[in-house]
């Protein structure tokens, strides 16, 4: 037995966390400056989101109700950025700084939900497709391929039309979940097939292990890396698409401090009359956040085992 296989075996026995540390993935990733930049951006946004949401509970940040209701009489309307209102105020005299910070919470929350649900669905479909090959595989994967061929924003628009308006942002989340699931299914199937090709799975199957056990114990853990990469890349896209749907009027209900909606109002009501701050700041935070996820995702993909890299587009 060569040294290499010995090390691999030892690593296998130490569990996932230890394996991650032993793998070149993490060190590769951390030596990539762009990816580290992405991590810093994401951590900063998470901190902002937590401050806005939980700060409201203990009174160091404005609560959602204050951010939603008009502040005419309390604040000046359409005031440019100042010390009191760093991002200015909107037509209803609401503090844009507070609204944009709370928007970070909404973006993180709904982005997480979208990615989490589509990852779960995608993992299920992808693993089933990889394991029960032939007709099941073919029908699942070719359906995913056709769905992937649809332009994502237009597909999301079509799906949004099916769900009732009362759902608010959840309507957009549901539509986007369906749009994103195929991407995960594809990655997971590709990764799972590579794992299944490995001999030890054959050995386990030969020993008579039941299907679900093989899937959960052996296939899934080995697919975690590509799944994580795909989730990271799609997190940015999810935030972007959610904001786009809000921008077009199919997302958050009026008054909600979501980035897309503030931007939409800022562009439609404030851009041509000179209130640039109204649309500038929500867009800035949105773009930075998405860039953070894209930088990290790209770096993770480069650090991935080349055999798995193919599966992630």
């Amino acid at each position: 037995m060569s040294t290499e296989t010995k090390t691999k075996q030892a690593a296998d026995e130490r569990g996932f966390l230890a394996r991650l540390q032993a793998s070149p993935f993490l060190s590769d990733l951390l030596s990539n400056r762009l990816a580290v930049g992405g991590i810093v951006i994401i951590l900063a946004m998470v901190a902002i989101a937590i401050y806005a949401r939980f700060g409201a509970l203990i009174g160091i940040a404005p609560d959602l109700q204050t951010l939603k209701t008009t502040q005419l009489g309390t604040n000046p309307s359409l005031a440019p950025p100042s010390a009191a209102h760093p991002f200015g105020t909107d037509i209803q005299a609401r503090d844009i700084f507070g609204r944009v910070l709370y928007g970070a919470w909404l973006a993180m929350k709904f982005g997480t939900v979208t990615v989490a649900i589509s990852t779960t669905l995608g993992v299920g479909l992808g693993i089933v497709a990889a394991y029960y090959s032939d007709i099941t595989d073919n029908i699942i994967m070719r359906t995913m391929d056709v769905l992937l061929a649809f332009p994502s924003l237009l597909l999301a628009l079509a799906l949004v039309a099916i769900f009732p308006d009362e759902l608010g942002l959840w309507r957009a989340v549901t539509a986007l979940t369906l749009v994103y699931t195929p991407r995960f299914a594809r990655v997971v199937r590709g990764a799972a097939l590579k794992v299944l090709e490995d001999e030890y799975i054959d050995a386990t199957v030969a020993l008579g292990a039941k299907d679900p056990r093989v899937l959960v114990r052996h296939v899934l853990p080995n697919c975690l890396a590509p799944i994580t990469v795909q989730s990271t890349l799609n997190f940015g896209l999810a935030i972007l698409d959610l904001a786009a749907l809000s921008f077009l009027g199919f997302g958050a209900e009026a008054g909600t401090p979501s980035w897309g909606l503030i931007l939409s109002n800022g562009v439609k009501q404030g851009l041509l009359t000179g209130e640039w701050w109204w649309s500038f700041f929500p867009g800035l935070l949105l773009a930075i956040t998405v860039l953070g996820f894209n930088l990290l995702g790209d770096g993770m993909r480069d650090a991935l085992d080349p055999r798995m890299r193919d599966a992630v587009e």
């Binding site: 007709i135 595989d137 073919n138 029908i139 994967m141 070719r142 359906t143 391929d145 056709v146 594809r186 199937r189 590709g190 193919d310 599966a311």
Partner: peptide, 19 residues
Amino acid sequence: LDAASGWTEQNSRRAMARI
């Protein structure tokens, strides 16, 4: 791109014909 995902015209046509 050397990244086969198992897509071929034939198996796609067959899957779609079934659906």
